[in-house]
Design a protein around this nucleic acid. Structure first.
Lengths: 138, 138
DNA sequence: GTAATGTCTCTAGTGACTAGAGGTTCAAGA
DNA sequence: TCTTGAACCTCTAGTCACTAGAGACATTAC
């Protein structure tokens, strides 16, 4: 059994974040010492690692709740889990696409201006003021 | 002179968002009718278009405040504007990189599981439970 | 004149934390 | 055993960029 600080060190999840996850129902309520401090065991560690991993991959707390629910009923179909992962993938791909468009536009803006003139002639500012100067939608 | 609703229609920025921008100091306080409703002119429209465009490109409100400050002093060096744009570009590129890694991992996870088994054998869940199954860092 | 639509301010909520205050508990050393 | 200091507790409020809703007032079209 170890403390919340120890759990934090092992999982690299900050202490307040662990408490927050407990409050959100991602982590079961921890056992307590007689002095009311949380104590964790291997199971708690595994659960938190799972959560941290999923968060790192961009899953929302809500999605993780569903995944945990599923984990706790190993007899259920895993279709839901696959759907959640696929939807996350779709999300990620949409974000990449959008960021690529932004990247191109920002490159164009930055290249247009050396940063050595005055604001009046700045291509960055001009581009922002007039969307028509953009080459593509973003 | 037109109303906030009209401005909203023309810029595609929602009415409460316009009021929010005013509160944040991005937009000058609008003139008012005798009945206390906001009225805008061409200048307000241009300013809001600028803001919207910058937000679309992912600039933070704070960054936009700096850009506007610069716009209002056309004699100043535009170095700051170029720096803001470049830093934004760096940000965007970092995000893309990270999302690409996530994409790969999610593809691998989804491919590993057909979604036709039970949760106990689900590769998605197994991957989340054990980071060691991952091919790369993310 | 009336009815419908638009606008006003204000407060509170979103997601996923993070920071801080003020108090209690624990573990290690003397 | 006592003391010190780090770690822990709960609670509230703040972050960012909005968004939603209540209840009241203004404007516009007929």
């Amino acid at each position: 059994m170890f403390s919340i600080g120890e759990l934090s060190k092992r999982t690299k999840v900050k202490v307040p974040t662990i408490r927050y996850y407990e409050e959100m129902g991602l982590l079961a309520e921890a056992e307590r010492t007689s002095g009311n401090q949380r104590r964790y065991d291997k199971e708690g560690l595994e659960r938190l690692s799972f959560i941290r991993h999923a968060r790192d991959l961009g899953f929302s707390i809500e999605a993780i709740l569903s995944l945990i629910e599923l984990q706790e009923h190993p007899d259920r179909s895993c279709q839901a889990a696959t759907e959640i992962a696929t939807s996350q993938l779709t999300d990620v791909r949409a974000k990449i696409k959008r960021l690529r468009a932004l990247e191109k536009e920002l490159v164009r803006m930055s290249k247009g201006c050396e940063g050595d003139g005055v604001a009046e002639d700045c291509y960055v500012l001009a581009s922002l003021a007039d969307h028509k100067l953009c080459r593509r939608e973003h």
